[in-house]
Design a protein around this nucleic acid. Sequence first.
DNA 1: ACCTGAACACCGTTCAAGT
DNA 2: ACCTGAACACCGTTCAAGT
Lengths: 212, 212
Amino acid sequence: MPTPPVTRTGSRRMRVDASRNRERLLASATAAFAEHGADVSLDEIADRAGVSIATLYRHFPSRESLLEETLRDQLEALGTKARDLLSSPSPGDALETWLRAMLDQAVAYRGLPGPLKVILESESSDLSSVCVRVNAPAAELLVRAQQAGAVRTDIEFRDLIDLVSGIAWAADQTLAPDRAQRLLSLVICALRCDADGGSTRAAAGKPEPSHR
Amino acid sequence: MPTPPVTRTGSRRMRVDASRNRERLLASATAAFAEHGADVSLDEIADRAGVSIATLYRHFPSRESLLEETLRDQLEALGTKARDLLSSPSPGDALETWLRAMLDQAVAYRGLPGPLKVILESESSDLSSVCVRVNAPAAELLVRAQQAGAVRTDIEFRDLIDLVSGIAWAADQTLAPDRAQRLLSLVICALRCDADGGSTRAAAGKPEPSHR
DNA sequence: ACCTGAACACCGTTCAAGT
DNA sequence: ACCTGAACACCGTTCAAGT
């Protein structure tokens, strides 16, 4: 067997020890984030994985890159959920369901709302990035809800990311993640309250909200 | 003149050099917070004030205590504004005006939303604390708006603090404090959208918003 | 190619020694 | 009573030296 012991991650060959260290780091990071929050020291993650801190840096150049990798599956799940909801019969409810799922993810552990906001708002040049696979269908959910007259048309997708992230952050700060869904109910109401004047699915026509 | 050179801060006598150092620290901190945000290193504040870091700790045992002191005037102004607005003819508009003022304060410089949230939510045992002088009249604004039927009755004051703080945080994270007021417009709409069905002052019974 | 110990910088916090 | 230099702990980050 002349071929060296390698494996693949993405499209790059890796030495087996490197690949194993990478996996150990990811497992260690997942546990550490869940236990101590997204601000846990990188030293502790490396220690738990049984590797040097320098090795951690070699595999993951930034805390964010490590965090994003540990969230990959959940982010993909959020994207899939958005795509599935696109065929749901009620566009307004579909959007709400997705926003609540995103919020649940955002408060999964302490300190996550900030990094998650960054990840979701990063416009990666790599079009196949997770971020796009989440945002594209989710933004579509918003458009569909607006076209159905279920949500105000003056709302942009980034407004939703900001509002949900902000709520998640506030709940996280108070160490009361259970408050998050309640606060989101209020925001959901805001999205719908002024939705439309005429069409089938619409809420009743209302006066303009008071912008100043 | 047998009396020692002292001054008063609060109700405690202080040596003149101590009092001067305290003032220098406050001035230095005000400038540093505005320039580098609420996370600026305490070392830099002490350096700029021309005192040792240990002296900073002697006067202000925590970053938050220093921050709160530099915000004292602005917090008092928020309290006064709330009291003034209590005699405004439109309770709904009065509440909105105050929320917008609070939001402006929250995004005054980077990193402020977090500490400000803590300050406003701290239930100090000292009843004369700034926090109470802000929260008491502001909470009254909410009650008044609810009694006038301008705001949903299922909203608590802490919901408002959390929502406004969350919006401020989101805008701060994106380095786009100008987005804050726009996001608040949406939340304001949520407060009002279901407020009332008929009578002038009474909040009519309404269906629950969609909690899940 | 990859891993590691070690160094460096920075920051928060505390304290013994001064006046 | 107050101030200070100095020490300590902790963390992020980088790099020369190993295999």
